[in-house]
Design a protein around this nucleic acid. Sequence first.
DNA 1: AAAGAAAGTCTAGCAGCGCTATACTTTCTA
DNA 2: TAGAAAGTATAGCGCTGCTAGACTTTCTTT
Lengths: 193, 193
Amino acid sequence: METGNRIAERKLRDRQARREQIIRAARRIAELEGWSNVTVRRLSDEISYSQPVLYAHFGSRDGILAAVAIEGFHELGLALEKARKRVKRGNPVESVAAAYLEFAASSPALYEVMFTLSLSVPFGEADTPAELRFAFGQLLDLFPGQGSKPEVLAELLWASLHGIAELTRTKRFPRSRQKERVRVVVQLFSFQG
Amino acid sequence: METGNRIAERKLRDRQARREQIIRAARRIAELEGWSNVTVRRLSDEISYSQPVLYAHFGSRDGILAAVAIEGFHELGLALEKARKRVKRGNPVESVAAAYLEFAASSPALYEVMFTLSLSVPFGEADTPAELRFAFGQLLDLFPGQGSKPEVLAELLWASLHGIAELTRTKRFPRSRQKERVRVVVQLFSFQG
DNA sequence: AAAGAAAGTCTAGCAGCGCTATACTTTCTA
DNA sequence: TAGAAAGTATAGCGCTGCTAGACTTTCTTT
């Protein structure tokens, strides 16, 4: 019964590797050709397995997108943390805001799935994934004990950045005034400090 | 050749009536059961015509959604205008912000299609529909000649409101702090005055 | 080491989707 | 009143997400 464990571990590793392969393929296709081209058949082709294998890993197509979305929140959280910690003096709001918009602009499909498919990813509740809490936490840390409502300021900064990102992604905002927009939004949220 | 005109007019009326019937059905189904249940077959059932009739009116399913979206922008523009003009003294930003969020909250499916599907509705270009220009104009009029960039402030207010609406619609924001959020965003954008 | 249980995988197919070529019926024109 | 034109329906294509059942490989047990 010594080998049993090793075999089980190998199987687990294989499973996880395949899972990551699926997620990677989904992200690649989405970023290059849009989410409508991320079909279960297409993914099963890319990883050279039949469709039911995908359904064994994720219960549905939406399950795949949800996994990608969570991975996205993880990466966004890391990017914001890095931006926040990098700036010792100078304005951390500015650094974080720039990092947020840079993330959204450089992976539009990823950002899209994080916020538009997202009804299957719970939020602000007991079972909210840690990745999401962490990402929002970075915004929350920008307003330590200001007034009585750091949450409100963090939520509002998030809403502003999300609005800018989304209206830019969907071509509502001309990209030309983007720097100006960031400057003003940073100014608005820094006066409160 | 006197009757010819009358007949042509009747036909035009019939056409427009049917077009409105389609849009109305789409909105109703979307608001009650979500956009994924708005299928061409379902719509053709509701209006008791076959599918090709829908394609004669709108070239595609997306065409139907685009028509609904434009109707939405029209109504949003009217709501914002009403809110802006109603307040003589007092803060017009507050009134408009409240009206915007009220619109988004009371017709979530309509708001969703206006911003989510919308890649087929051009913006900020020569062929942007008048309904969209009008709606954005209401926000623009809140910042008459302030500094050199009223557009930037209007865009930023729009982004903030859109972010709040969207993060609320997708359950990212608890509805509990909503009043507080509006209060603070209004304050931020009023200091600039 | 052989037999049976379990896990893994594939084939094939269902119902539903957006969309359209073709045929038919009604309405208008001359 | 005959022929042109417009309006409408039927039927079907290729695609989708998803799954029941057969088959194969791997592990467990005696």
